[in-house]
Structure formats: structure tokens, C-alpha cells
């Protein structure tokens, strides 16, 4: 039997205010508001960690400049010039690197113990993931716009309509989304930031054995089927056709199929990683 010597019995206890259950509308408003708050928080981290910002802006621009001026002359392409060939490919690659940030960001939060706090707060648990993805998509839009601007300064020109021109980076960003899902699953699972770095070993060859930097036909014959089957090649071809104003229908459909397929695999993986008891 517990005996309280230091507390008055019941009358002194403050009357418990009735707890009003929030309506469905309120809950929906909260969910949207929570996601936006988490997005804003993640974007603030982008801005305040200059090394992150460097990774997603300076590095791809450096790639664009070096490839164009150092290697471009030696690479034979069907487009008017190499920068026109390269820009769509390198944008898709950069968006994939951006997807890795999704994993890094979640790994950081998870390892720093911040998730413990977030999970104990009265917000939808998915907020951590949706807020992360939204912030990374916004960052990708910003980076894609920056790269197009630099590309245009280097002589790149869109060959199609305004809609096709806008669709070029959109395809790249959309393709990166399920990849973000994969990296989210990894980021939510790893036990150290060092483990996160190994993901680079997977993504780097994937983006090079493709049509992003050189035409597949210039590769050794044994490598060509691999490069052709690479979903990254398909997304790059779709983006390039849109940039040039050529017919992109086939590549767009195939990209759509890949995005759907990857999403179907990635989302359950990420959800499972997030719900994993830790």
C-alpha cells in the first residue's frame, strides 16, 4: 500500500481538464503543418551546414565544367555540342546524389537521438520522412535550376517547348524520389555515419555505366547491354529527349514504369526501417 505523506488527498489534485479529441480536419491540418515545419527545419540545416550546400551545388557544377571543357572535346556525340549532351545526364546524376542526402540526414537525426524526441511528440510519425523528402525535393529543384543556369552560360540551349524544358528537370527529380526512399531505409538502419559513406560506392558506378556522359555505343560491347538496361540510362534518355525537343514518349513511359517499380519496393523498406524497434 502506498502512503503519501507529502501530498494532500484527492481534493488538492487539480481537476483534470476534459481532453478534447481533435477532429479529422484538425488532424489533417496538423499533419500538413508538421510536415512543413519539419521541411523548414531540414532546409535550415542545409543552409547552416555550408559543407552540405557545397556538396550539392559546387561539386556538380565542377563536374559539369570539367567534363565539358576537359573531356568534352574527345567525346563524340550526336547533339550540337557536348554541354547539350551532358547537362540532362549530369542533372539526373546530381538529383541522385541529392537523394543520398535524404539518407544522410535521416542517419544523422537517428544517431543523434533526435528521433527519440520526435517520436515522443504528438505528431504523425511519418512526419520525419515526409518532411525530409519534401526538403530534399526543394533542394533538388534549387540545384537543378542552378545547373541549368550554369549550363546556359556554357552554351546549352533547350530545343523544345517551355513545357518540355520544364519537364526535363522534373523527370530527373521524380526519378530521384524512389531512390531517396532507398537511402531513407539505409539511413534509418545504419549504426554509424561511416556506414552511410559506403552507399556512394553503389550509386557512383551506377551513374557512370550509363548514357549520362558518353553514348552507350562507344562502350565495349559486353558493357552496352548493362548500360542500356540501367534505369538511370532510361531516365537520362528521357531527360535528354525533352531537353532537345525530341519525341520522349517511349523513354518517359519506361521511366514511369521504373519509378513505379522502385517506389513499390522502396516505400515498404523505408517504412519498415522506420518502424523497426530500436
Amino acid at each position: 500500500m502506498t502512503v503519501a505523506t507529502h501530498l494532500e488527498p484527492t481534493p488538492a489534485a487539480p481537476p483534470r481538464p476534459p481532453v478534447e479529441q481533435p477532429s479529422t480536419g484538425t488532424k489533417l491540418r496538423w499533419a500538413v503543418q508538421d510536415t512543413l515545419l519539419m521541411t523548414r527545419r531540414n532546409l535550415l540545416r542545409y543552409v547552416r551546414l555550408p559543407e552540405n550546400l557545397m556538396g550539392v551545388t559546387v561539386q556538380p557544377i565542377m563536374f559539369l565544367v570539367l567534363f565539358t571543357y576537359v573531356l568534352g572535346g574527345a567525346i563524340r556525340v550526336t547533339t550540337p555540342d557536348y554541354v547539350t549532351y551532358l547537362l540532362p545526364g549530369i542533372i539526373v546524376q546530381t538529383m541522385l546524389f541529392g537523394a543520398m542526402i535524404t539518407g544522410f540526414g535521416l542517419a544523422q537525426d537517428q544517431l543523434s537521438g533526435l528521433f527519440e524526441r520526435y517520436r515522443s511528440l504528438p505528431m504523425a510519425r511519418s512526419t520525419v520522412i515526409t518532411g525530409r523528402l519534401l526538403a530534399d525535393v526543394i533542394a533538388n529543384i534549387f540545384v537543378a535550376a542552378l545547373m541549368i543556369a550554369v549550363g546556359v552560360a556554357m552554351g546549352f540551349r533547350f530545343g523544345g517547348s517551355v513545357a518540355e524544358s520544364l519537364a526535363m528537370p522534373a523527370v530527373a527529380i521524380l526519378f530521384a524520389l524512389p531512390i531517396s526512399g532507398f537511402f531513407a531505409a539505409v539511413g534509418l538502419t545504419v549504426r554509424s555515419m561511416e556506414a552511410m559513406n559506403t552507399t556512394f560506392i553503389v550509386i557512383f558506378p551506377l551513374t557512370f555505366i550509363s548514357s549520362a556522359f558518353v553514348p552507350v555505343e562507344s562502350m565495349p560491347s559486353w558493357l552496352q547491354p548493362i548500360a542500356d538496361a540501367n534505369p538511370f540510362t532510361i531516365a537520362v534518355n528521357a531527360a535528354r529527349a525533352l531537353a532537345l525537343g525530341e519525341d520522349a514518349t517511349g523513354d518517359l513511359v519506361r521511366t514511369g514504369v521504373w519509378v513505379t517499380l522502385l517506389t513499390v519496393i522502396a516505400v515498404p523498406l523505408a517504412v519498415r526501417a522506420y518502424n523497426r524497434p530500436r
Partner: peptide, 29 residues
């Protein structure tokens, strides 16, 4: 109805002290 302070300070390094508190308060709606 609860608050939790765990074993490791769950603080966002890149936010200021005020921003940290404000964000958590906003997540309580």
C-alpha cells in the same frame, strides 16, 4: 500530455536554443 528528456540531449545542433524550443512547441501544436 508528456515531455521526455532522454539519456542523450535530443537537441538540433544547427538550430539556435530558441529555435529548438519553438520547433518542439509547434510540434505540440
Amino acid at each position: 500530455s508528456i515531455g521526455l528528456a532522454g539519456q542523450f540531449a535530443a537537441v538540433d545542433d544547427q538550430l539556435t536554443g530558441l529555435e529548438n524550443l519553438e520547433l518542439v512547441a509547434r510540434f505540440y501544436h
